[in-house]
């Protein structure tokens, strides 16, 4: 996705809107997305190698990793909230440009109490077909599953021993129960991620780490032999993905 949207930061708090803050240094704040499996870094150079051990005992490859976050907010230590104007970001491990996003051009330097965002889209934002850049990126969910967009696309192959590798498609969407296709039951699976205190320094770079192994083990130990492909229409699998997503993100500490 080459299309870039200009970034701005909105001060949500009105307390200080009218005050002159010209003496507060600001920075162009960049956010980098890092990826790991256990203690090993995962990058586009590692795609396709069946090498990552799961808690359940398989080894897997990461051949495609894309995910979406939305509603990103920075909370200053003094309580002010900075809402990133860009409503969502689509990250793609194979496109390095997508892994460094701008959170704003005039972000005050200083101490912040938290950064939070939604992994995926809350229902209010998960509107079918309304985001041209995501449509162009082929990020849609079929109408028969409630429409809207994917939250996560993690594809690869896995092996339990030396047999021919099998495919897996760990795709996370809003859970849809199609037991009765005429009465689809939808359940939100997007979740809020809250990362604790951090500092915005003048160099203006933050880094978040996605721990890929967590998708397969915490708290639910994922059995790829049971759940590997066709997970989009699997209501129970979607709920387990949401559970496991809770521990996936943390601040990156090199």
């Amino acid at each position: 996705m080459n299309k870039k949207i200009p970034f701005l930061v909105l001060w949500v708090s009105t307390l200080l809107m009218g005050c002159s803050k010209t003496d507060t240094p600001t920075t162009q704040l960049q956010l980098q997305w890092k990826h790991s499996w256990g203690t090993a870094a995962v990058s586009s150079a590692d795609l396709n190698q069946i090498q990552y051990p799961t808690a359940h005992g398989e080894r897997l490859s990461v051949e495609r990793l894309r995910y979406l976050v939305s509603q990103m907010v920075l909370v200053h230590q003094d309580g002010r909230e900075l809402e990133v104007e860009t409503p969502y970001f689509l990250m793609d491990l194979s496109e390095s440009e997508s892994l460094q996003i701008s959170l704003g051009n005039d972000v005050p330097v200083g101490d912040y109490s938290e950064l939070r965002f939604v992994f995926g889209f809350l229902d209010e934002d998960n509107l079918d077909g309304v985001y041209p850049d995501l449509n162009t990126a082929n990020w849609n969910v079929p109408a028969m599953l409630g429409g809207g967009y994917h939250y996560l696309q993690l594809d690869g192959k896995f092996q339990q021993s030396d047999e021919t590798p099998q495919q897996y498609n760990y795709h996370m969407i809003r859970a849809a129960d199609r037991s009765d296709p005429d009465n689809l039951i939808l359940q939100e699976t997007a979740f809020e991620v809250v990362l604790g205190a951090f500092e915005v320094s003048e160099d203006g770079v933050l880094s978040i780490e996605m721990q890929l192994d967590q998708w397969f083990q915490n708290p639910y130990t994922w059995d790829l032999a049971q759940w590997n492909t066709m997970l989009m229409p699997n209501f129970d699998a979607q709920l387990k993905m949401k559970e496991n997503g809770a521990t996936v993100f943390r601040w990156y500490r090199p």
Binding site: D128, G129, N135, T136, N138, N140, P142, A143, M144, T229, M230, M232, P233
Partner: peptide, 25 residues
């Protein structure tokens, strides 16, 4: 429906959808 159904054709992951009328990724 076959085209869009992950348990049948699952064509849409590479070939677009009504929301991506290029019909290719």
């Amino acid at each position: 429906e076959v085209f869009m159904d992950e348990t049948r054709g699952d064509c849409f992951h590479c070939h677009g959808s009504p929301n991506n009328p290029l019909w290719t990724d």
